[in-house]
Design a protein around this nucleic acid. Structure first.
Length: 488
RNA sequence: GGCGACGUGGCCGAGAGGCGAGGCGCGGGACUGCAAAUCCCUUUUACAGCGGUUCAAAUCCGCUCGUCGCCUCCA
């Protein structure tokens, strides 16, 4: 099944055609591990996690590589502040990152390379660039000469002339052209570094991804992905290096997600307007964040707020209960005249078709969700009407379950929602200790006691039990088929 | 200053020449001991403004206004 994707390089929609189907090689720029990940990183990770799941669902054999930048000035600064070794900082935030990924249910990449484990490849790459006249050594540093690459600017659609006109680039006496970028930076003796033909030093940021892609994925990859803020200079500079060496396109498709903003301004460390992923998943079910991200097309900006989290939470609960809370309906199953005459099987078919069609048009998760919510409305309508008349026919129930399970499976497989096992275990370790631990058995007793009170019209007692349980984070809902409880 | 994107109903958010996606909210109703949840109805001159192309424009073209991003580390 084919699909269309927006390619930043051509600035247009293109039919996706892999180089060696069914193999699809994807590289996405990971994080620099000097602090906890925030919602901005989370969006990118979730978008490409879902995209990767989608490809796998379509039957592609996906090799997904996401790196760690574990040597960088910001890591060194942090290490100096804390009086620690840079590697211990990097390791700490890699551990933090893995916890976040598990909590928000982002699948591990097939390869998660670290820059510090690829020094040989990086040095070889730089040597090659010098050898072919694309880079030059200058006082222990090595720079890429952008004048040597005629296509410089093709991804970000700007010319070196325009960039120079910007004139915000610090002129460096070491560079031939102010736009030249560092492939290798000499380190001071107290700073971390590696021996190289040019100096004791460390790699520049843009070099690592090229070296790791060549090693793990090859000279031309299918998809290179990342946040739109990486287009210039990072991805532009990657293209310059890679294509100077191979003479071949570095990536067939360049995919960039829109940024997360707060009150219209980019969420970033420097502005201090960020919300960490831990802030989110210690307060909300991580599915709420995933749903929030997927409600917006991946290329549009996404303005984050806790108000929006609350709205999304409501939508999520409606969705979840429609596909999961089937027991009360089962309890009232019996023969009779069908209540609504909904053909759940054809509804399932059209919903699935529309869902995949939406994703095939530049990965429109927002539109795909609209179709899901249409089906959710039908499921809930069935519930409401069935409870009203007091029964559901076994045939209708079977149809309901068929549609509900189908939706649930799709949401689980592709959107990574409604997953029971993986994240709950992680969350328990982070949850602040609940004031009271109520066992399911004891809860049943309380519910029975309350129902007894209701039968005796002792509503004060009944409401007291309900209110007290709510304070403990357990919500009771009375249905025709009995009382159900939910953990908030 | 240069380059790029965007401006859709109460709010959020898809769509991209002719059918008012979807989510949240407000109001009314059904159900309920009361809630909650759910459903139904309503919110129907929605597409920044002004021109133009067209039988037909939110969608294409031009100009204007506004917001944001990139040009420096950034998902």
């Amino acid at each position: 099944m084919g699909f269309v994707l927006y390619n930043t390089l051509s600035a247009s929609l293109e039919e996706f055609v892999p180089i060696n189907p069914p193999q699809v090689n994807i590289y996405t720029c990971g994080v620099t591990v000097y602090d906890n990940s925030h919602v901005g990183h989370g969006r990118s990770l979730i978008v490409f996690d879902v995209f990767r799941r989608y490809l796998e669902k379509l039957g592609y054999r996906v090799k997904f590589v996401r790196n760690f930048t574990d040597i960088d000035d910001k890591i060194i600064n942090k290490a100096n502040e804390e009086g620690k070794d840079f590697m211990s900082i990097a390791n700490r935030y890699i551990a933090s990152y893995y916890l976040d990924m598990e909590a928000i249910n982002v699948k591990p990449a097939n390869v998660e390379p670290r820059v510090t484990e690829h020094m040989e490849e990086i040095i070889a790459l730089i040597s090659k660039l010098i050898e072919i006249g694309k880079a030059y050594e200058s006082d222990g540093d090595v720079y890429f000469s952008i004048d040597s690459f005629k296509d410089y600017g093709k991804l970000s659609k700007r010319s070196p002339e325009e960039l120079e006109a910007g004139a915000r680039i610090e002129p460096s006496s070491k560079k031939n052209n102010p736009l030249d970028f560092a492939l290798w930076k000499a380190s001071k003796s107290h700073e971390p570094g590696w021996e190289s033909p040019w100096s004791y030093g460390r790699p520049g940021w843009h070099t690592e991804c090229v070296a790791m892609i060549f090693k793990h994925l090859g000279e031309t990859i299918d998809i290179h992905a990342g946040g739109i803020d990486l287009v210039f200079p990072h991805h532009e500079n990657e293209i310059a290096q890679a294509e100077s060496i191979t003479g071949k396109p570095f990536a067939r498709y360049w995919m960039h997600n829109g940024l997360v903003t707060v009150g219209g301004k980019k969420m970033s460390k420097s502005l201090g307007n960020f919300v960490t992923l831990k802030d989110i998943y210690t307060k909300y079910h991580p599915d709420v964040l995933r749903l929030l991200v997927l409600f917006t097309h991946y290329r549009s900006p996404l303005d984050f707020s806790f108000e929006k989290m609350e709205e999304t939470k409501k939508a999520y609960e409606r969705l979840k209960s429609a596909v999961e809370d089937i027991e009360p309906l089962k309890a009232i199953a019996k023969e009779g005249n069908p209540v609504l005459n909904i053909d759940f099987y054809s509804l399932e078919k059209t919903t699935q078709e529309q869902f995949y069609k939406a994703l095939s048009e530049d990965f429109n998760t927002s539109l795909a969700l609209a179709h899901v919510f249409n089906a959710v409305g039908e499921l809930n309508r069935t519930k409401t009407e069935s409870f009203k008349v007091g029964y559901i026919t076994p045939k209708e129930l079977e149809g309901y379950i068929f549609l509900a399970n189908s939706l649930k499976q799709t949401l689980k497989d592709i959107f990574g929602l409604l997953e029971e096992n993986t994240l709950s275990t992680t969350l328990k370790t982070l949850e602040p200790a609940s004031s009271i631990n109520i066992s399911t058995e004891f809860l049943e007793i309380l519910i029975n006691a309350r129902n007894l009170a209701k039968e005796n019209k002792d509503f004060k007692v009944a409401d007291f039990i309900r209110d007290e349980l709510l304070k403990q984070g357990i919500k009771l809902e009375d249905t025709k088929a009995g009382t159900i409880w939910k953990k908030l």
